[in-house]
Amino acid sequence: MAHKWKLSRFNRNVQIEGQGGRILYNSLTGAIATIDSIEEIQLQSLSKKNDEKGKLSEILSTLCENGFIVSEQQDELLQASQLHKSLKNDTSTMHLIVMPTEACNFRCTYCYQSFQHGSMSEETIRGLKNAIKNFAQRITHLSISWFGGEPLLAPEIIADLSASFLESCNANNVVYGADMSTNGYHLTKERFQELLGLHVRRFMITLDGIGESHDRRRKLSGGQSTYGRIIENLKAIRDVDGLFVIDIRINFDEQNLVNVPELLNELSLLFKGDRRFQLLIRPVGCWGGPQDDRIPVCDRTSADYHLWELTNQGIELGIPLSETIGDSLLPSGSVCYAAKSNSMVVSSNGNLHKCSIALDEDTNRVGKIHSNGNMDLDMEKISMWTDSGEETDTVCQSCYYRPSCQGNHCPLYRMRTGKRPCPHEKRKIKQVLNLLWREANSINI
């Protein structure tokens, strides 16, 4: 039977910068490939002819296997819809963002938090242990993100909870993994090794410049500097023999934009060749905190430009690109945790939230955890976070990036502004695909 093929509606096809050839990306399969100009002619002529499947050339077969071309009968919109439903109905996994304390030793100039609550209460600690003990009997994966505040102001709570989580997971063959967002000030080599033992394998640590250009933005609550100590900690961690990833995050706005290149040079000197240290650059935003009217944020056009321009500078200096960038292009890879039904933020007083930013907003107070492990949940509020994506937006439904973000990259942004929350990666997909291509080449060389 003759087959007629079509190009997938979820393809993106961009020029390789500075040379011939194209980069193909498909958001339903996550595949990325390069083709030369002859192969592109084959690809573009595809829709003009019928082909026996058995007679597809080797290249067209590979394109087919990776989702770049699909049978003309294939209902791709239905496939995208099914992907979205499967994510919404996933009950086999759980992701908790846990705040062992909401206190912080830093007072960063652009922070959105109010530091209202200190360390996690005994009642909440008991509740979390009991909740995981119960959940572990019916899930296959548990993922914990240690967050705060500054989580390393409460290392004993992290150790206590981790031991209990690991015990529950081991007893039920549940795959356990953890990551941590920390300012790095208390992440000594000894503390780091202890955390590796507790299965914390991914860390995000922020540096905003070298020395004073970092310190004026990310200082201690008493105003003292922090850069020197964080760098000393990172150097000590570099000497640890182990499997882990450190995302070095750089937050930029108009104030420190000029200081980022010298920081990239420094990071290259310190970590070039060690693929465990990776680069993640993000623009600062007005995230709803008390300092919003004093933050010199870049406008969207400027932020989009500098984000990938600076990231490219880092890659050219030999600093590996954060894996989170490539992962965000996978199917469901750009869906925010706040939009996932199996994800929850647990604050230190036992309140449950969907979003880790708007902690004080009523729509984001979605429940409470009790000491016996039971969770009171407001399903109506939760659905505001999980059901406000592609199902409400016809533009998202027809977008090539739909399988990746499902209209749910940031439900908070959509709620607050009424605008579509397109991810940074989608807005500059040409630059991002070229970055991933260059990164892949640098690994293979």
Binding site: A33, L330, A440
Partner: peptide, 8 residues
């Protein structure tokens, strides 16, 4: 044609 990342 060169695959940078195959379909999952």
């Amino acid at each position: 044609m060169k695959l940078i990342r195959p379909a999952i």
